[in-house]
Design a protein around this nucleic acid. Structure first.
Lengths: 240, 240
DNA sequence: CTGAACACGTGAGGC
DNA sequence: TGCCTCACGTGTTCA
């Protein structure tokens, strides 16, 4: 195996690696990038020279690709705690765990977010399924003042949904309520369903507005969760 | 470059690759794993044979390492939507973006979670800093009935904290309140601070209990956010 | 045909 | 010593 001998001191299997010195007189080093070019003083290039320049460009490109990947791995390492001095594979497996646990966290956290706000709104949006990238899910919510009459309408709406996998939930807080539908396991044709649900929810909300018949319309001053920072000096904040 | 000729059809630079046939009579193929062993019928092994077996084991080990890494990359690809048919580097950069956005999501979601619950509790916990893996942060919360007298005690507590980077917030809901302190930028010695804060909060809560002087102690029946699933049949849920 | 992306085997170096 | 991880240059394939 002596034709594989390293004659420059660089690491790795640098079989035809020359550190900036080119053995053929018809080749020259490109100034901007460390790639090989034909020497302009020559007119023709031998096949051996062409092979050399191609090989050199190839190895340079491959090095750049490696650097790109390793840079991303380094970024992931800074983003993932406790992965310094860790194996490449170990780092990746740790990243996998982190992504999974982050998804569980955000799922748990958004689960607690079903608290009715003080503004009326209907939101229907498609969201990714954490466990299966191929299938998506729809999350539809309607937030408004609480009314018994709405419940039967909502039940009609949820019964009209395709029975893939439907979860429905209602939260109330004081006079406010929010109803959330989550339909999972959709494989395709999501957008029509999104539009349909949005229209249904909006008509329910409109019907609710009509039934209110302009009673106590302005300055409703709904109860509100108050949240404030400490005043920076003195403890006589206006809130308390 | 004809000494690099591929004489077996396998892909890649298999320089001394013989597909199961060993050119030296003193070597034999191990049955369980595709590694090279010494032929038991021989007594001694030449140095060339030893070099061959070492090389073969080395390349096999390297292949296993590659497979391990690529398996993790494949897992990440299934976990990250829209990364099929994507570059290795592109996949990693997408994973980075996903981790970052997931962290923002969970930060936003947990930010909305500062709604006082109906159980009294003090929680002090160390949590990771998303932007900097080297530094951690402490999140301390105290949840109880609202009392003006608590506020001065809380202000004392927040003033006593080391002024690294302190964020304090109070939320009230009806008769309930929750106070949250977040101290960021801690580099070390976190646990003593955690213990100190926990003790401070608990003493505040104890002081609050003492000031209540056993008034209206049992069956306090605090107001509660109601959250329920639809009953699976009939619309006469007891709730409504 | 050029360039990009991948798997491969190999040398270096760390325990 | 032996085993492991990493970077390197190379062969191959695909757009």
């Amino acid at each position: 195996m002596d034709f594989f001998e390293n004659f420059d001191g660089v690491q790795g299997g640098n079989y035809l690696g020359f550190q900036g010195v080119v053995p053929s007189s018809s080749l020259i080093l490109n100034n901007e990038r460390g790639e090989l070019m034909m020497n302009p003083s020559r007119q023709k290039m031998g096949d051996a020279d062409k092979a050399l320049i191609a090989l050199r460009n190839h190895s340079n490109a491959e090095r750049r690709r490696r650097e790109r990947i390793n840079a991303h791995l380094a970024t992931l390492r800074t983003l993932t705690p406790g992965t310094t001095k860790m194996d490449k594979a170990g780092l990746l497996s740790e990243v996998i765990n982190q992504v999974k646990s982050l998804r569980e966290n955000v799922a748990e956290a958004t689960k607690g977010t079903v608290v009715p706000s003080d503004i009326d709104e209907v939101r229907v949006e498609e969201e990714e399924d954490p466990n299966d990238a191929a299938s998506t899910s729809i999350r539809a919510s309607l937030c408004c003042d609480f009314k018994h009459e709405l419940l039967s309408d909502l039940r009609e709406a949820v019964d009209a949904l395709p029975h893939n996998d439907v979860r429905a939930e209602i939260s109330t807080l004081g006079t406010r309520m929010v109803s959330v539908f989550v339909i999972t396991g959709l494989k395709s044709q999501v957008q029509p369903l999104v539009d349909s649900i949005r229209q249904t929810f909006r008509s329910i909300l409109d019907k609710f507005y009509a039934s209110e018949e302009f009673s106590s319309r302005s300055s409703s001053s709904k109860r509100r969760r108050v949240s404030s920072l400490f005043a920076s000096s003195g403890s006589s904040s206006g809130l308390f």
